[in-house]
């Protein structure tokens, strides 16, 4: 069956999944195109949000309703918080050594 856009409303599962895919792709573009490590971290957060939207969409439309997707999303958010904490700590440590957070200048990790 050829792909066809869902009708404008009501909001269906496909709408949620499309949004998730779009956020994931935009975040990916950010990860690939930026060189400031903190902005790359932000773009990763956008990607994780795309994944979360997908999880939540599946949880919302599943019949009979199961909330596993939402529980997963809670874990994703929690792990993302821990990831941001450690990631920024590493970035700050690199900055202290190199006075820069541009990834293409900080690729030599020999102290």
């Amino acid at each position: 069956m050829p792909p066809s856009l869902p009708p404008l409303y009501p909001i269906t599962l496909q709408h949620g999944l499309l949004l998730g895919a779009a956020l994931f792709s935009v975040g990916l573009a950010g990860v690939l195109a930026k060189r400031n490590a903190i902005v790359i971290l932000m773009a990763v957060e956008v990607m994780l949000n795309g994944v979360n939207v997908t999880f939540v969409a599946f949880a919302g439309y599943l019949q009979p309703p199961v909330l596993t997707g939402q529980v997963f999303a809670v874990f994703v958010i929690a792990v993302a918080a821990a990831e941001a904490a450690v990631g920024l700590a590493i970035i700050i440590a690199i900055y202290r050594l190199r006075q820069t957070v541009q990834v293409d200048k900080a690729d030599e990790l020999r102290g």
């Binding site: 809670v74 958010i77 929690a78 918080a81 821990a82 941001a84 904490a85 920024l88 700590a89």
Partner: peptide, 20 residues
């Protein structure tokens, strides 16, 4: 100074804990 970051870090961890 780094102490600011350490507070933010501890806050994030404890906030996630409180949300759980």
């Amino acid at each position: 100074r780094t102490p600011y970051y350490l507070y933010a870090l501890l806050f994030v961890i404890f906030d996630v804990e409180a949300v759980f």
